[in-house]
Computed example of a mutant assay.
Amino acid sequence: NWFSRWSASGYAAVWAEQNSREAIFDAMRRKETYATTGTRIKLRFFGGFGFDEKMLDDPEMVSKAYKNGVSMGGDLVGNKAPGFIIWAMRDAMSAPLQRVQVIKVWTDGGVAKEKVFDAACSDGGTPDANFRCPDNGAKVDISDCSISTDKGAPELKTFWRDPEHKAEQRASYYVRVLENPVCRWSTHDALRAGVAPNPALETTIQERAWSSPIWYVPTA
């Protein structure tokens, strides 16, 4: 029952040059957009053939990423393995960030395929051989909905390259950012009403953000 896992609302966001109707619609046309389940996570996602880890510490990282690559919603046309820059910043009014994931989508013999890679972990963790972050130990106290204050990250910034890249294989990549767990809205409602949470519903949820894809388009 997917309803039991849904959050209460969501936001759509665009990266526009200015807060004007024209700039916002231009950003929507180029698909430089992302969404969240309701928190105000900030998310940037770029891809390019000349990117590397040194860019992460460059104060001009964003401008260079635009100049030498594409932002979310763009096409990367070539036959080399692209590199990706991911930068996520938490909503100060919500939970810290737990991990950043890259979801790869491609087709094999006409069948759609998907694989999830954890690309950045909070609390000093690193992805294992199965591309998964360790559990960072963040907890939720259902009795009052308080959360761990010593787990998670205010931001996660990373460089990522597909470890299973195939030069001839067309693919798309999008980013998903997960917060530490918090109480689901129905649990908050139950606490305010002084009743036990509905056992048919999830008591906690991980708020998240997800980007528009970047498409890798191989050349002949």
Rank of each mutant, 00 (worst) to 15 (best):
R21S: 09
F84V: 02
G78F: 08
R208C: 10
S148Y: 06
Y66K: 02
F3R: 13
F131K: 08
G152S: 14
L156M: 04
T107G: 06
G109Q: 00
C121G: 11
N198L: 12
I214P: 02
K67S: 07
L43F: 03
A8R: 15
G194S: 13
N136R: 14
P163E: 08
K113Y: 07
K166V: 11
G124F: 03
S4G: 06
A112Q: 08
W87R: 10
A13M: 10
Q98S: 10
L56V: 12
G38W: 07
T203R: 12
H165Y: 15
F84I: 04
F45W: 07
F25P: 03
A112N: 12
G124E: 05
T219E: 06
G137D: 06
F25A: 07
T33R: 10
S146R: 11
H188I: 15
G152P: 01
D57I: 11
K64T: 04
E60C: 04
D52H: 05
S9M: 09
C121Q: 08
L191D: 13
I103L: 09
M93I: 08
Q98R: 15
A13K: 14
P199Q: 11
V70W: 00
A88K: 08
W160T: 04
K115I: 01
F51V: 03
A12T: 11
D26K: 09
S122C: 15
T107Q: 06
F3A: 15
L97K: 03
R192P: 00
V217R: 05
V105F: 00
M89K: 15
A196H: 09
A95Y: 09
F131P: 01
E179S: 07
V140H: 09
G125P: 02
T107K: 14
Y11G: 05
G110W: 01
Y216D: 00
D52C: 10
E22I: 03
V217L: 08
I86E: 00
N136S: 12
C183N: 14
R161Y: 07
K139N: 07
K67T: 01
D123K: 06
W210P: 01
G124K: 08
M93D: 14
P218F: 01
S143F: 10
G69R: 04
S9A: 13
G78A: 08
V177D: 02
A119D: 03
Y34T: 05
V105W: 02
L43P: 05
N68G: 13
V217H: 09
P82R: 14
K64M: 09
E179Y: 04
S211Y: 00
D75T: 00
A112V: 09
S186D: 04
R208G: 04
V195K: 12
A112L: 10
E60S: 09
D58E: 08
V217M: 07
